[in-house]
Amino acid sequence: MNDLATYNFAYLDEQTKRMIRRAILKAIAIPGYQVPFASREMPMPYGWGTGGVQVTASILGPDDVLKVIDQGADDTTNAVSIRAFFQKVANVAVTTKTVEATIIQTRHRIPEEPLKEGQTLVYQVPIPEPLRFLEPRETETRKMHALEEYGLMHVKLYEDISRNGHIATTYAYPVKVEGRYVMDPSPTPKFDNPKMHMSEALQLFGAGREKRIYAVPPFTEVVSLDFEDHPFEIQTFEKPCALCGAENVYLDEVVLDDRGGRMFVCSDTDHCEDRRAHGHAGSMLASTQHQRKEPAE
């Protein structure tokens, strides 16, 4: 049985890669349109990045440098696991530094550092259909995309406004790509939506369980849906990152104790480390460094 268990470079067989590669080229040619593909069973569960992994495995070559993030961080367990998978099956060079990576596979975040030409961002997507929660049927949503009939989405957003005074969608906030297709940006916080617009990098989206691949080529219009009287707004944070002092970045809330103590730190761990290496310091940095030493003393 042992001699049976050999795998191709990057795990997938060549026929599967060709099928996915063809889907990627069509996805690039029709920005924001979800290309159906014959997603394969992967050695990690559906919902854990099988779409992203299949896209990465199909584009990856021996000269690539791969970065994998989950929630913006390189050290979250699933990011570690996917990175280790590609090290094992493709022997690929890996990095945590955004600027060094040629391919970045991500779940739920876009790095803070603006991406450059030559970089490809691969998103893991759970539910690729932006209209799915308004209309569960694929046969119906497909028609709506075909006819460019997106009224339902506007109605939903407007209902939010009439109920709450503002749009209550905070992540997976729908966008319109190149004035044609309404697209789900994956469950990134809407804070990241503006980064997709006219990005220099190629953005590929893989949904394994739902068997869809879609793309946003570089320099492509990506506009968050909104209304004239209620323009799209991103989240803002009251304080800068407690570790590196960065402003205008997305922050995670870290619970410090059971008495309501909180600190806010960069969700993008590489960005935060890089700033600290360059001498930036936030309000909690000195104290955490001090505290970290304590157990040894």
């Binding site: 080229l25 690039i28 584009i59 070559g61 190629l202 793309a215 080529p217």
Partner: peptide, 18 residues
């Protein structure tokens, strides 16, 4: 075949993207 196809595909992908 494995690496040649990968390399040609990447050139095609980049060319379609740009």
């Amino acid at each position: 075949p494995v690496f040649a196809a990968q390399s040609v595909f990447r050139t095609l992908m980049d060319s379609f993207a740009r």
